[in-house]
């Protein structure tokens, strides 16, 4: 028992900045904003460093340019993006699917219909110490968003994936009627690994997906005849007789609409309590910013600096989103995209 006046003075508790941002994110954010800084110590309109690497060594054809040979990797295109602490690794693999036998000669002019474009099937995996199991909400939402954004960006035309130059290993080349022959197309899958999750993930994942897509090379295809059996121990340990096999070395570069290549940017909007001014924050980072910025603007800008997509979420009596804010955000996005893509 301590004898005393019973009124011990309570000392103030002092937290380091990183702990305060978890305990009281709003307070941490406000204090930083008052100083004209952000909790990550960047300026309001300052973006994070971004490093793009499309020669990551993951792809089958990565060594081909250096005079080395192809590897036995099934990856057709890949990229690695590093921004701040976050690293995103994207690898694109493929499959072959039988398609309906429609006439290849299109009579009318191609009017840009989304039916003529396709997308990649992405699966995002964010490493955050979770044991094997169902994907998290964030992973599922990101994957779906990536699929849809790429589809509507009209980057990947369906006809680029159609296999029309199949080398036939048969004797009769005389009648070349395609009528009763099956037609095939490639289908692309992406696996996106995120390490050290921080900041606007959609932007990085979408960026890595688009950059990987630009590197995709599709292998040459030929049918196999009856005698041709390949010994594929790596895959299933036995002799398999696939209908179609791909050439180990020859490839075609995937044709994509380079004009439609675009980049996504997400901005956070906060209000500094002192005034009515709404502050735009680029590349949200850290716990304080991500939890306190409920108002977000997502902009997608293409190579020619035209806006392709705009999504505004939030806004209330404190965070007023007016025309000026939107225009300023789009301008910031254009400047940034100009630096990245051109």
């Amino acid at each position: 028992m301590s004898e005393g006046n019973g009124q011990e003075e309570m000392g103030s508790i002092r937290f380091p900045a990183e702990i305060l941002s978890v305990v009281a994110p709003d307070l941490s954010l406000k204090r930083h904003l008052d100083l004209g800084l952000r909790p990550c110590l960047r300026k309001f309109h300052e973006f994070k460093n971004l490093t793009l690497n499309v020669k990551s060594g993951l792809s089958r054809y990565d060594g081909d340019v250096d005079g080395e040979s192809v590897t036995d990797s099934p990856v057709l295109g890949s990229s690695v993006i590093k921004s701040g602490n976050t690293t995103v690794i994207c690898g694109i693999t493929g499959g072959i699917v039988e398609i309906a036998n429609v006439s290849t000669t299109t009579t009318s002019d191609d009017h840009d219909d989304s039916m003529e474009y396709t997308s990649i099937y992405p699966v995002v995996e964010i490493s955050r110490g979770k044991l094997n199991g169902a994907p998290t909400d964030e992973e599922m939402i990101l994957s779906q968003q990536l699929y849809e954004t790429l589809l509507h960006s009209k980057i990947l035309p369906k006809k680029s994936l159609i296999i029309d130059n199949i080398a036939l290993k048969t004797n009769d080349d005389t009648n070349n009627n395609n009528n009763n022959r099956k037609r095939y197309a490639f289908v692309l899958y992406a696996n996106i690994q995120v390490f050290s999750r921080e900041g606007p993930l959609f932007d990085y994942c979408y960026g890595s997906l688009v950059k990987s897509l630009q590197t995709v090379k599709l292998p040459f295809i030929h049918f196999t005849d009856e005698e041709f059996i390949i010994n594929d121990n790596r895959k299933n340990g036995g002799n398999v007789k696939p209908e179609i096999i791909c050439d180990s070395e020859a490839y075609n570069q995937l044709k994509i609409n380079e004009e439609n290549i675009n980049w996504s940017l997400t901005f956070g909007l906060v209000n500094n309590d002192d005034g009515k001014e709404t502050i735009i924050l680029c590349d949200l980072e850290g716990h304080a910013e991500e939890t306190c910025c409920k108002s977000l603007i997502n902009v997608i800008i293409d190579k020619n600096l035209k806006m392709r997509y705009l999504n505004i979420v939030g806004g209330d009596e404190n965070v007023i989103i007016d025309e000026n804010i939107v225009l300023k955000t789009v301008q910031l996005a254009k400047n940034r995209v100009n630096n990245i893509l051109n």
């Binding site: 080395e68 040979s69 192809v70 590897t71 036995d72 099934p74 693999t93 493929g94 499959g95 072959i96 699917v97 039988e98 099937y121 992405p122 699966v123 169902a134 994907p135 599922m140 994957s143 779906q144 699929y147 490639f186 289908v187 899958y189 292998p219 390949i230 010994n231 594929d232 895959k235 398999v240 696939p242 209908e243 179609i244 096999i245 791909c246 050439d247 180990s248 070395e249």
Partner: peptide, 23 residues
Amino acid sequence: RRRLLGPANASPIVFSDVKEKKS
């Protein structure tokens, strides 16, 4: 249903063997 895995009827890409001398 939680992952976007693409069409169910897709078949795998099988590559012919990489030439030994190069690999």
